[in-house]
Amino acid sequence: MTQISKAQVLKIAQLAQLKLSPQEIDIYQRELGVILDFSNKLQAVSVNHLEATEQVTNLTNITRIDEIDANLALDLKDLEKNAPNFIDRQFAIPKITH
């Protein structure tokens, strides 16, 4: 079975900005191992000669003039309703200390 170490679980949690309890670390260590085992089926197929597909529409990026459409702009009052702390048209957040 694919073994994933506790250190790896903690590293992933850090990257994903998740705080895990000790029980969750154990659970995810086990479950991720099982899921990765399942995903290892991918190793059986030879695809290195192929290009990666990122999206299936075959559309390519286009640009537009950078101007505001007042009909589409969100109302600050609606944003304020959901905000924990909204001061002077800005979201106030705790200090970033590191």
Binding site: L42, Q43, V47, N48, L50, A52, T53, E54
Partner: peptide, 8 residues
């Protein structure tokens, strides 16, 4: 690898 499998 998964993206290339998607192509396949």
């Amino acid at each position: 690898k998964a993206q290339k499998l998607r192509t396949l």
